[in-house]
Simulated assay, not measured.
Amino acid sequence: MTRTAQQLFGAAAVASFKLNGQFLTIAEELAKPSGITVAWWQVLGAILHEPLPVAGIAREMGITRQSVQRIADVLAGKGFVEYRPNPAHRRAKLVAITEAGHDAVRAIDPQHAAMAERLVAQLGTAELTRVVDALTTLSAALEALEGDATAD
């Protein structure tokens, strides 16, 4: 049976909503022993390699600036991040991970690695690579469509 574009779009949306829920459930279990939430992990993950302004984290993670700001403020209060001056923008400070933030993320690594191995055992490396590539392509296409929609 050939599906219409609308049916395919709907099926992709439903599958991605379910997948998002599954990832969040797994991530909660992975993050729990380190004492951080999935939302905190998400923000810390966005700045693991370089400090970013709140808006940059929001773009990277696909969440709102307001949500990121609230989380960043909590993380700063707990010593997991710090605000630094941003040479590119006087008012938009950079959010930088601290050593305590790195420690919290590192505490997740053993469970994260074990779950990754279980998934690779289930799918195989080649299939998981194909899935990741397809999801990345779908995300880029939707991002391009968002840009088209705002240009109208």
Rank of each mutant, 00 (worst) to 15 (best):
R90M: 06
V132R: 05
Q122H: 14
A31Y: 04
T136E: 14
D73R: 11
S67M: 08
A141W: 13
R3P: 06
I57A: 06
P87S: 09
A134G: 09
T25W: 11
Q42I: 01
A121K: 10
Y83T: 00
A88V: 05
A100G: 09
V54L: 04
I63D: 02
T37R: 09
S139M: 10
A116T: 08
D73A: 14
A141T: 14
T125W: 11
P33L: 00
Q6W: 13
D109P: 03
A15M: 13
R118V: 12
A12P: 07
D73Y: 07
V68C: 11
V38P: 00
Y83W: 06
H89C: 03
L94V: 00
V132I: 15
I108Y: 03
A113V: 12
E82N: 12
V95Q: 01
G45C: 06
R106P: 00
L128R: 08
I63P: 03
A104W: 04
T4F: 10
Y83R: 07
A114W: 04
A149M: 15
E99L: 11
F80K: 03
K93C: 03
T137S: 14
A88Q: 08
A88N: 09
D103Y: 12
G10L: 14
A144G: 11
V74Q: 11
V14G: 07
L123Q: 04
A121I: 10
K93G: 04
I36G: 05
A11H: 15
I97S: 00
L44T: 00
L8M: 13
Q7W: 09
V81M: 01
I108A: 04
D148V: 14
A140N: 13
E146L: 14
I63V: 13
A39C: 06
G21N: 08
A15N: 09
A39R: 08
M61N: 11
R106K: 09
K78C: 04
L75V: 06
V54N: 04
G77P: 05
E60W: 02
T125S: 12
A149P: 10
A126F: 07
Q66V: 13
A27R: 10
E143T: 15
I26F: 06
P53I: 02
L145Q: 13
A39P: 04
L119N: 07
Q69T: 09
A58I: 02
A11N: 15
M115A: 15
A58F: 00
V74C: 08
A92E: 12
A134R: 13
T136H: 15
P53F: 02
A116L: 11
R118W: 06
Q7I: 07
D152L: 15
I57Q: 02
A55C: 08
L52T: 01
T150V: 13
L48S: 10
K78M: 07
L128T: 07
A46K: 02
A12N: 11
M115D: 07
L119G: 06
I97G: 02
L19R: 14
A27K: 11
A58L: 04
V38C: 02
D148P: 12
Q42Y: 00
I71H: 04
E99K: 08
H112V: 09
L75Q: 04
E28M: 08
G79V: 02
L128Y: 15
G147V: 12
